[in-house]
Amino acid sequence: MAFTSNSAAGSPMADINVTPLVDVMLVLLIIFMVTAPIMSYPIDVNLPQRTTTPPPPTAPREPIRLRIDASGQIYWNEAPQPITALRGMMDAEVARDPTNQPMLEIDMNNEADYGVLAKVLAHAKNADMQKIGFVQATQ
């Protein structure tokens, strides 16, 4: 077996032989490819089941119009309400029919404090209101 070198005659070759390294890496790659499916964990997903009888159609309920004016006053269907009464009113609307909730349409004045809107949204979330929309009144 002859060695070649780029330097003077008689000196050993200083380059590393990468062929064994490539062989080992290919073997490790094959091992990981074979064992990876074994190490996977199943995830339980509750998918909806097909039914032959669809649920009866329900008419949508009248939306709740909630308006916040520039001073922070809240109007529930054009009737002024304190912010502390909102949670009870929202709970009552959700409890009336939890599967067919009304749309909560929030109209906020541009000059109103954002903190009031944050409290309204927190009350809606805590009351488990599902349908919330933002509307912009035309000027």
Rank of each mutant, 00 (worst) to 15 (best):
P48L: 08
M1H: 13
T138L: 13
M39D: 03
N110D: 15
Q101I: 02
N100C: 05
M39Y: 08
G72D: 00
V45Y: 11
R87W: 00
P80Y: 01
I64H: 00
L29N: 06
I132Y: 01
Q136K: 13
G72T: 01
A112F: 01
H123E: 09
I16D: 06
F32L: 14
M13P: 05
P60D: 08
A59T: 14
A124V: 07
Q73M: 04
A59W: 01
V135S: 11
N126R: 11
M33P: 00
L117H: 03
A70R: 15
P56Y: 05
D15P: 00
D128K: 15
P20M: 07
K119V: 12
V24Q: 07
I64V: 15
V18W: 14
G88W: 05
I74C: 01
P37Q: 02
G88A: 13
G10Y: 00
V22L: 11
T99L: 14
I30P: 01
D23C: 11
V116D: 01
L66G: 05
P42D: 09
P80H: 04
G133H: 09
M1D: 08
D113E: 14
L29V: 06
N46H: 11
P54C: 08
A137D: 07
I43T: 09
I64Q: 04
M129Y: 00
A92T: 05
A36S: 10
N6S: 00
